[in-house]
């Protein structure tokens, strides 16, 4: 429970969520592609840039929370300002085929592995 007029314990609990780098990312793979997901509420595609080079992907941008006129902030927890995350993948990324989608404040980036990095089946010859 949060008292609108301040509660030190609640502040500590809320601060915990952003003790790490912002934005937080989840990464998974399906063999041919890696996917990077980041929670970016209140951000539009115009505010985000995704750059790929070799085996690195950089997600950067800016979140602006405009000041509302005519009031006093009782609590300000939501992070704002410039952000940037650089992720180094264990394989090269096919930069031409990268796709990024922003939906409900969640950014999902599809990073196809370069041909050389894809898993392949090695035919076994019978001797």
């Amino acid at each position: 429970m949060t008292d609108v007029f301040g509660n030190a314990l609640e502040d500590l609990l809320a601060a915990r969520a952003f003790g790490a780098a912002f934005p937080g990312v989840n990464v998974w793979e399906d063999g041919d592609n890696a996917f990077v997901e980041a929670e970016l509420p209140g951000v539009t595609m115009d505010d985000i840039e995704v750059d790929v080079m070799g085996n690195q992907v950089v997600i950067k941008g800016e979140r602006n929370i405009p000041d509302e006129p005519g009031g006093v902030y009782r609590r300000r927890e939501r992070p704002q300002g410039k952000f940037s995350r650089r992720l180094t993948m264990p394989w090269d990324i096919d930069a031409d085929k990268v796709e990024a989608m922003l939906q409900l404040g969640v950014l999902t980036t599809k990073l196809p592995k370069s041909e050389a990095a894809k898993p392949r089946k090695v035919p076994v010859k019978a001797a």
């Binding site: 952003f18 609590r75 409900l104």
Partner: peptide, 24 residues
């Protein structure tokens, strides 16, 4: 999960803004 919020008090109202990524 605890959503992060901003709370603004005005003369006649409160404005709560909460981050709820991935929520419809």
């Amino acid at each position: 999960y605890t959503p992060l919020v901003d709370i603004l008090e005005k003369d006649d109202s409160f404005v709560f803004k909460a981050d709820l990524p991935g929520v419809r």
